[in-house]
Write a protein that binds this DNA or RNA. Sequence first.
DNA 1: GTCTTATTGATATCCATTATCAGTAAGGCT
DNA 2: AGCCTTACTGATAATGGATATCAATAAGAC
Lengths: 142, 142
Amino acid sequence: MKNTTLVTMTTSDSVPSRRQTWQKDAVLHALGTSQGFVSAQQLHRQLTQHGSAIGLATVYRTLNSLVADGLADSLVGREGESLFRDCSKDHHHHLICNGCGVAVEIEAKQAEAWASKVAKDHGFTDVSHTIDIFGLCKQCTK
Amino acid sequence: MKNTTLVTMTTSDSVPSRRQTWQKDAVLHALGTSQGFVSAQQLHRQLTQHGSAIGLATVYRTLNSLVADGLADSLVGREGESLFRDCSKDHHHHLICNGCGVAVEIEAKQAEAWASKVAKDHGFTDVSHTIDIFGLCKQCTK
DNA sequence: GTCTTATTGATATCCATTATCAGTAAGGCT
DNA sequence: AGCCTTACTGATAATGGATATCAATAAGAC
């Protein structure tokens, strides 16, 4: 039971200036070329297979910071692992194929509105939601 | 795990008759008395603290079979752990407090309808969805 | 160039969950 | 009741994703 309400004081003056590294570029680029959602492990495998000598820990770190900075989107897959995707655009949701992993972006305004209304109605704050649809795409259904 | 030689199952159907054990009852009962969603670990802790000498593996096994049988509901929490809840009723969704863990049951007909429509429109089959809202409840907001 | 320190990466570690497997006991049978 | 099959249990090992550690490296400021 974790209750650490940690607020990571990234405020004001103590902001460490980010440094640009080829590793970060590599992760971002690899993310960008991926079709659907990918796990950190997959990404790392892909990178190393392409010759990159990036470390696994760095991939995790980079992905997390990307998500924190809103440059990537993440969701929890079937087995509980985190999946990532390039997504500097606005917030949206996905229709994901359990077979091939393809992810279709879907408009969820309706659902979003509903979600935030429900939360508000119950006096909840700091609201986030998880709205994703899983299934088998037309190809994989065969 | 290959059982090459001892398949022989002459029994009409391969459905192994379930046996009733105090362990299963204990898990089910503990689930029933829990307020919101609980993790397998929490449940096990609760049970052992109450004198029960049930094994952790059994708790996991039982919970999984409960979910498989539709007697329990499960979802993936913030840290990626599985959370369970007594829920033989029909499918529904939850508004979950990240602070205290309280789970409010919510009507999601709207969202569900939307989800299945979107999936169908894209030719997806075997569809399931993940619709949950997280936030801080009124109490924990303070 | 020199210095500071953010960042990296190999590895140890953590933690939830599952697999193993010998021992136990539920429940059918006689 | 006793027997027998085997579903079930539980201590523990193993798995696997993700994070922590920490010395070494290199980005960016001077």
